[in-house]
Design a protein around this nucleic acid. Structure first.
Lengths: 157, 157
DNA sequence: TATTGTTATACTCTATAACTATA
DNA sequence: TATAGTTATAGAGTATAACAATA
């Protein structure tokens, strides 16, 4: 129970029963990272049926709401480096979810657009994302969910 | 001949001037990840003088506040896989920031402890972390900072 | 000269299987 | 049999340099 040492042992090597995480839990970065990983973990599970990782969803979502967006614009918006986007775009094009069309004003760039099947997939995927949001926000009140997003924006914007 | 109005061009490839991110910005996961990355980026800069990555700081901080903690306990607390912790522990031991002592009750395990120089480093590093917290929280009110951490905990706990 | 998209490549992070020694 | 620590290794994610085509 108490495990009281006999008076004054050198106490050479104490053991830890319950880990004290109170210090880390007071740090914003620690909590933000844990929360992000928790949400993203659920997100990955729900997007698995569509064979979309979070980054694929982000890319397709930006193309959905910005038809004709270029690779360069995707990169700077999402913080992806151009060489790392190439493979993703190629894969999405190979799956016939997106199509490249010539940019109307810049011969170097290609505008990215959803194909009909890409549009259909994203309608379902965004519905799933909305359901997931409602679920996670279910642990919060609607007001808390809005507050949380507002405060997170204040941190990174 | 005349039934193709000039107004109704096929609009073959629109261009995007300003990227619309409003959809993604409504998603909790997107905002949590962006905020976490922003905070961690500053954290990395401030910890560079100590040659500590965020994960090193987390490990040393847990050892600081839990003398005798085992590798296994570190792994389960921080969500690190055992094989990936080995190298970190070895490196910290080689820098003489931590020392392994035999676990008092389990011959398989080793208790981890700060060395005097490790203790000194962590006093400085935790002071730096506290200053950084104050700075980031400076973009929020003290109440907002507390609210943010409370809501983040609700999301991942 | 600067920028878009691209290739090649390296480095870090994370994940899996299997071994050892203790429990 | 199960667990703590370890090794080896594979895969994913992220980074820089350099090139061709176009601005």
């Amino acid at each position: 129970m108490m495990n009281v040492p006999a008076r004054k042992t050198p106490s050479p090597a104490p053991a830890v029963d319950a880990v004290d995480t109170s210090y880390l839990e007071g740090l914003l970065g620690y909590n933000a990272r844990r929360a992000a990983l928790a949400v993203i973990e659920v997100f990955m599970e729900r997007m698995a049926p569509y064979d979309l990782r979070p980054v694929d969803f982000s890319v397709l979502s930006l193309i959905t709401h910005n038809p004709g967006i270029t690779s360069r614009q995707l990169c700077s918006t999402l913080g992806i480096l151009p060489p790392n986007l190439v493979g993703m775009i190629n894969a999405l094009e190979k799956r016939e979810l997106i199509a490249r069309k010539p940019h109307p004003r810049d011969g170097r760039a290609m505008g990215l657009h959803l194909t009909p099947s890409g549009l259909k997939l994203m309608r379902d995927a965004e519905r799933t994302a909305a359901a997931l949001e409602a679920e996670v926000s279910g642990r919060l009140s609607p007001t808390e969910a809005k507050t949380l997003i507002r405060l997170l924006k204040k941190v990174y914007l």
